[in-house]
């Protein structure tokens, strides 16, 4: 019975995931290109803005941008999608009793797969700058995926559940994600903040975003900073799941 229940839950997540992926890639032949275009366009804009207009010179800035924007894209898209996911699937939630948590899980996996699909582009930019993937990837790639996924899912549970009760939350989330973007070292580096850089520890994703960048740039990973992200993940994921468990019985009557 337990084996069947586990198999069923895995099937639920993968069925929802393959739905999302199929829909994304079916609608347009350019599906894959579209998912790359947004972060690449942002990278171009910030490159021109910072190096030409503000005339700040940062070493390997195109790589800095690409190595930060793609992981960020996963965070931002998952958090935005999660906040609307229970309300958006109202028809299903009102009528069937499947575990609603799988919706949040599949949304975050969906964006994780898009991130993985964009890695060849990041590698392309790396090679252009003469940086090569190294042996650390074998260890850190899965570890960073796991940490970031845990944070994203934890936040997703909180926002998805609360949005059922406070419908305008999703609007606040959209604004919040934009602010959060500038509070995360995506378009700038940590040392540009000087003595204020310790404040970045309060941002759950700083450690993991910086670690991705270091990994893609062949630079040493700041393990202390990554530790803060791990700590945040350990706090956020159980708290988010607990909140969801507390609230999920009311979803069907409120969505």
């Amino acid at each position: 019975m337990i084996a069947r229940s586990l198999e069923y839950r895995i099937d639920l997540v993968t069925a929802l995931l393959s739905k999302e992926l199929r829909v994304r890639y079916k609608r347009t032949v350019l599906g894959y290109a579209w998912s790359l275009l947004n972060p690449l366009a942002m990278a171009c804009i910030y490159f021109v803005l910072v190096t030409k207009i503000f005339a700040v010179s940062i070493d390997k800035y195109p790589l800095v941008l690409v190595a930060g924007l793609f992981p960020w894209q996963w965070i931002a898209n998952s958090v935005l999608a999660s906040s609307m996911i229970f309300v958006g699937n109202a028809g299903l939630i009102r009528r069937t009793s499947f575990p609603r948590a799988v919706l949040v899980l599949s949304a975050s996996l969906n964006d994780m797969i898009h991130f993985l699909a964009s890695v060849p582009v990041i590698i392309g930019v790396m090679l252009w700058h003469g940086v090569y993937p190294d042996a650390r990837w074998l260890l850190f790639f899965p570890v960073l995926l796991l940490i970031q996924w845990a944070i994203v899912v934890g936040i997703g549970f909180v926002l998805a559940s609360c949005n059922v009760f406070l419908r305008d939350l999703e609007r606040l989330v959209a604004i919040g994600v934009t602010i959060w973007f500038y509070l995360t070292p995506v378009i700038y580096t940590r040392d540009m903040l000087g003595r204020h850089s310790d404040l970045l520890k309060l941002n759950p994703v700083t450690g993991v975003v910086l670690a991705w960048r270091s990994l893609f740039m062949g630079a040493p990973i700041d393990l202390a900073m990554l530790g803060w992200s791990v700590l945040w993940a350990i706090v956020i994921l159980p708290c988010g799941y607990f909140l969801y468990r507390k609230m999920q019985w009311r979803f069907a009557e409120l969505v």
Partner: peptide
């Protein structure tokens, strides 16, 4: 799957 069957 949404109605409770496994893929198999």
């Amino acid at each position: 799957v949404l109605l409770g069957m496994t893929k198999r």
